[in-house]
């Protein structure tokens, strides 16, 4: 069984962001980088499936500069067998249709039985790439999966809907599955597995070999939203802050009376 999991390296969302000199993206300096959170669930599910299916072979794909190899090594240490690194210094400028095009071009003649990815990235948050890959490959795609099971070529999943309701859905492989937070508990790589991961295949392919589609949209401008709240900001010593807040709650609400 051949499995592909597609991951993205993103900044830690708690970072202090700045807009870059071009004014169309965030500056990439002074940021801590990590695996897109949704993709951690995708990697975990792919690894669990590989462990369940005796003949499982799992490739992790990531597009970006040399720097994304760090994130790929984490996926390898979690249990992926090999890495397919698509070298692209300009990945942040690629829109979802191009990213999906690159992945589909890579995957098209490799007969993957299942392709996993996060339901969206934490930075762009477009939630398009998984379904676009499915459409490009002409296979079914299911989004927002919070439960996954696979048996005898049939995928049984639950999709998370608003309000906590789930839709129960099944589909025959091959298929693309996009993973929602909470699907599983992503494992922490162990030290022996981190060491083993260093010896795993991690091949780089220039993006030019795989990018065959044109961009359909572009970012004209990136900026910080105007602060809407005229809310009061309290700063200072914790004990004084507690007294101030109690005073405000007494004045503005009836909850302390």
């Amino acid at each position: 069984m051949k499995i592909l999991v597609c991951i993205k390296q993103v900044p830690d969302m708690e970072s202090k962001f700045k807009v870059d000199a071009g004014g169309t993206w965030y500056a990439k300096t002074d940021l801590a980088w990590r695996m897109n959170e949704y993709d951690e669930y995708a990697v975990e599910q792919a690894v669990q499936l590989k462990e369940q299916e005796k003949d499982g072979d799992l490739t992790v794909l990531c597009i970006g500069s040399e720097k994304v190899k760090e994130t790929m090594k984490k996926a390898l240490a979690m249990g992926c067998d090999r890495g397919a690194h698509i070298t692209d210094e300009e990945v942040s400028g690629k829109e979802p249709y191009q990213i999906a095009g690159i992945i589909a071009e890579y995957a098209k003649d490799k007969n993957f039985d299942l392709i996993f990815t996060g339901m969206q990235s934490q930075d762009r948050g477009s939630a398009q790439v998984g379904i676009l890959v499915a459409e490009m490959l002409g296979i079914p795609g299911i989004t927002t999966v919070v439960r996954f099971a696979f048996k005898d070529g049939v995928v049984d999943v639950k999709r998370e809907l608003e309000g906590g309701i789930k839709a129960c859905v099944s589909v025959n492989a091959p298929a693309v599955i996009t993973c929602q937070l909470g699907l599983n508990t992503p494992r922490y790589p162990t030290l022996p597995n981190i060491m083993k991961a260093k010896k795993k295949e991690l091949l780089s392919t220039p993006v030019q070999e795989l990018l065959k589609v044109e961009a359909r949209q572009e970012t004209a401008k990136m900026y910080f939203p105007e602060k809407k709240g005229g809310g009061l900001v309290l700063e200072g010593d914790a004990a004084a802050l507690a007294d101030q807040l109690i005073k405000i709650l007494k004045e503005k609400t009836a909850v302390l009376s």
């Binding site: 969302m13 934490q122 930075d123 004209a220 900026y223 910080f224």
Partner: peptide
């Protein structure tokens, strides 16, 4: 007429133009 979307957990925004 320009569409505005959030980026990075709504910390940033971007204006998007389409070519289609």
């Amino acid at each position: 007429g320009t569409m505005v979307v959030p980026v990075c957990n709504a910390k940033l925004r971007r204006d998007v133009t389409v070519k289609t």
